[in-house]
Amino acid sequence: MARMGMVFDLKACIGCNACVVACKQENSLPDGVFFTKTLSEEYGVFPLAKRVYIPTICNHCEDAPCEKVCPSGATHTREDGIVMVDDDKCIGCNSCAVACPYDQRTQMDAEKFLKGLYGTGEITPFEEQGYGRYTPGTVTKCDFCSQRVDVGLDPACVVTCPTNARIFGDLDDPQSAPSKMIRERHGRQPLPEKNTKPKVYYVN
């Protein structure tokens, strides 16, 4: 069985946030909710100042702490390694949110759906068709666009990235693009000391 994962090429990421917009569109995310973020970090002083971009996403950990603490069984791992949240089972207790070392969980407060994308209370037809997939009050996160993966497509953020900074594929397949990249460019996982075994790697 496949073990889906992602690699972020930090040298390639230019911080354009196209992935963030694509994710919000694909998943109809309300205002203030992000399944992926591009963080930035600045260091040094002029003229040697530098800014780097660090994309973040749910790491779909093999030893997912969010799954372990979920009291209702809403968080579960699919056979292909994608960590999912079952809306019907989630009670919105947020225990997964405090258990995730990467702070990748968001509660879908009812107000978020009422405010609309522009914060005016006006819901566009696009939002109207998309919001139906969420249950207000539940806690959600990135699922690698499982609806796309199921039909053989890459996640929306990967397809949109103009610099190929996001590479998605089967980490169990040594010939897959992410496996090769991890091997050749010494991919590292975020916060490895937390022992969660993320399936998201960073190369530089």
């Binding site: 009291p71 209702s72 069984g73 809403a74 089972k89 989630c90 009670i91 919105g92 207790c93 947020n94 509660q107 879908m108 407060d109 249950t135 207000p136 009050g137 539940t138 806690v139």
Partner: peptide
């Protein structure tokens, strides 16, 4: 709780 109506599920 976000969905208090389903809080019984916390026992599962």
């Amino acid at each position: 709780m976000g969905v208090p109506g389903k809080s019984w599920r916390a026992m599962l």
